[in-house]
């Protein structure tokens, strides 16, 4: 029997809020691999993810939806495909208060081409403005990419749910048109 795919991936640069988002969405305490951040120049926060985040949403019928987060720092790039394997969709988090955030976003789109070409990816900007949301939509269309872009605070469950709803709609349509 082919298993139903049920893994959603959270990607994005350091400090974008992947660990935070998975904590917010998980039914139980999410598991993570946080260690002390020795590179406060890169991003000033106490800890950083070195391998993965893991959380789950329990559905009524005993099924689980697995939430995986990657370590965002670029030197962990070799780990990304390991964590990403089998994911049906992804939320790309970007922190618009970081200096090079637009290029960071493009970097991650390049690193996960499969999720981008199948359209199974939602861009979730945090600490950004309506204006920045429009900028990103414009930037994507100039790259010939057509992806949903939202403003999302990863500490806010309601906003994350909206992001997931869009991903679900995306996956439903993908499933239907490839049936």
């Amino acid at each position: 029997m082919t298993p139903v795919h049920n893994k959603i991936l959270f990607i994005g640069p350091m400090g974008a809020g992947k660990t935070t988002a998975i904590q917010t969405l998980s039914d139980d305490m999410a598991a993570n691999t946080e260690v002390r951040n020795s590179n406060r120049d890169m991003y000033d926060k106490a800890t950083t993810t070195v391998a993965m985040d893991y959380g789950a949403i329990q559905l009524d019928d005993e099924q689980l939806v697995h939430l995986y987060g990657i370590p965002g720092q670029k030197h962990f790039e070799a780990v990304w495909p390991v964590i990403a394997k089998g994911a049906i969709g992804a939320i790309l988090l970007v922190n618009a208060s970081q200096p090079d955030w637009q290029n960071d976003m493009l970097y991650f789109l390049n690193a996960f081409p499969q999720l981008v070409t199948s359209g199974s990816l939602v861009v979730a900007i945090n600490r950004g403005s309506d204006q920045q949301q429009l900028q990103i939509l414009e930037l994507l269309s100039q790259q010939n990419l057509c992806l949903p872009v939202l403003l999302t605070d990863p500490r806010d469950r309601g906003q994350l749910v909206m992001t997931l709803e869009i991903l679900i709609a995306n996956l439903e349509i993908e499933t239907l048109i490839h049936e």
């Binding site: 082919t2 139903v4 795919h5 949403i57 559905l59 089998g86 049906i88 439903e172 499933t175």
Partner: peptide, 20 residues
């Protein structure tokens, strides 16, 4: 597009519906 192997569509859709 390069897509991961698609499971039976019905099951996949029902999973998405339960998640929603």
């Amino acid at each position: 597009v390069n897509r991961p192997v698609t499971p039976p569509a019905e099951q996949q859709l029902s999973l998405l519906q339960s998640l929603r």
